[in-house]
Design a protein around this nucleic acid. Sequence first.
DNA 1: TCGCGATTTCAGGAATTTCTGAAATTGCAG
DNA 2: CTGCAATTTCAGAAATTCCTGAAATCGCGA
Lengths: 209, 209
Amino acid sequence: MNLPPLIQAFVLHFGEMGSRWGINRTVGQIYALLYVSPEPLNADAIVEALGVSRSNVSMGLRELQAWNLVRVRHVPDDRRDHFTTPGDVWEILRVLAEERKKREVDPTLSVLRELLMQAPASEAERHAQARMAEMHGLIEQLTNWYEDVRKLETERLAQLLALGSRVARLVEVTDKVVSLGRSRKKEPSDDRSAEWRGGLNRPASREKK
Amino acid sequence: MNLPPLIQAFVLHFGEMGSRWGINRTVGQIYALLYVSPEPLNADAIVEALGVSRSNVSMGLRELQAWNLVRVRHVPDDRRDHFTTPGDVWEILRVLAEERKKREVDPTLSVLRELLMQAPASEAERHAQARMAEMHGLIEQLTNWYEDVRKLETERLAQLLALGSRVARLVEVTDKVVSLGRSRKKEPSDDRSAEWRGGLNRPASREKK
DNA sequence: TCGCGATTTCAGGAATTTCTGAAATTGCAG
DNA sequence: CTGCAATTTCAGAAATTCCTGAAATCGCGA
C-alpha cells in the first residue's frame, strides 16, 4: 500500500473496523479509498493503492455494489469501469440504514411473525411466545418509525436531529392540547397475544447437529 | 439440542443471525435461550439445552456480560451462578444501542478527529480531509441526537416513536410560529438547528475545528 | 466472426474465528 | 487448611472466512 499518510490511516482504520461492521478488511478499505478519492477509480488503481489481488478487488466491489454503497461510472475514452461512492453523506446514511435493516432486522421480524402464529404446546412455549411478542412489538414500532422518517427530505431530517430531545417538549405540549380537546384516552390496548393465537401449527422440526 | 420446537426455532434463528450481528452462533443461541426462559438458568442448564461444551458456554456468557446483555442472579440454596436477560425490551434496546455505539461508532469518531487535526500535505490529502470532515459532521450530529434521546424516559421515547414522521409537521408548524414571533429572543445556547440549516443542501466542506 | 483487454469465477491455500477437553483456578464449607 | 464443586483458562482441533492465481468469460472494436 502506497498512499499519502492521512489517507492510508483512514483506509486502514476502515479495514480494521470492517470486521465489527460485518464486512471484511478489503471491502472496508476499498470503500474508504473510494470515499476520499476525488474522482472515480478503476479496479487496477484500487489494486495498486491497496496492494491486494485483482480478484479480491473484484469481489469487494461486487459486495459493495450489492450494498448500494458504490456505483459504476463510465469515463469517456476509457473502456474500464470506474467506481465511486455516493457523494452526499446523508445519502450514504440512508443507504446504510436501508441495507442493514434488510439484512439484520427484517429476517428476524419475519421469523418472529411466523413463530407467533403457532399454537403453543406447553406452558414454556406460551411464556416464550409472550416474550417473542414483546420483541416483535418493539421491532415493529422501530421499523414503523424508520419507515416514517425515511420519507423525510434530508433537510427536515436534519432539523429533527438538531432538535434532539427538545422534540419531547413539543410532544408534551401537544399531548396536553390533545387531552384537553378529547376526554377519551387515546392509547388503544394492545392485545397482541390474542391477535396471534390460533394459527396453523407446522411441524417445523429442523434438526441441527 | 432438545427444546420445545418453538423455542428451538427461535434459538436457532438467533444463532444463525449472530454472524450478521458480529457475535458468534453460540453467543446468539445463549442469549435467545435466556431471553425466552421464564427463570434464570445456570450454565449447565444452558449446556444441556444447546448441546455445546461447558467452556463454550462459559465464554459466551462472559461476552454477553461484557455487552451488559445478561446479568448474574443468585438463587437461594444454589451455589451456582444463574443468568438472565434484562426483562424490559426497551432496556435491552438501550443497552444494545449503547454498546454498539461504543464499539462501532466511537472509535471511528476518534480516528476522524485525529486525522482532521493534521495539516494536509498535498491536494489529495486536502480533499480527503474535506470528505472526512463531512463524515465526522454527520456522525457527530447523530451521536448528539442519540445522547439527547437516550435521556428520555421510556414512555416519552415510545411517544416519539409512535408519532413518527408526524413530528416533522410539528416541527414545521413550530418553525412557522417561531419565525412569526421572531422578535422574541430564545435561549441562544440551544440553537443547534440554525447552525446546520445553512449548509445542509450542499455538502460543501463545513470545517470542524 | 476473431482478437484482445477487462473482468469474473473458482478451487484451494492462508488466515482467522470458534469450539472443545483437559488442566488450572476459585471460593466456600467443614 | 483440605476437599470439592463450580468456573475459567487455554492450547490446539475444527470450522469458517478471506484471499489469490489461473482459467474462464465477457464485451467490444475491427
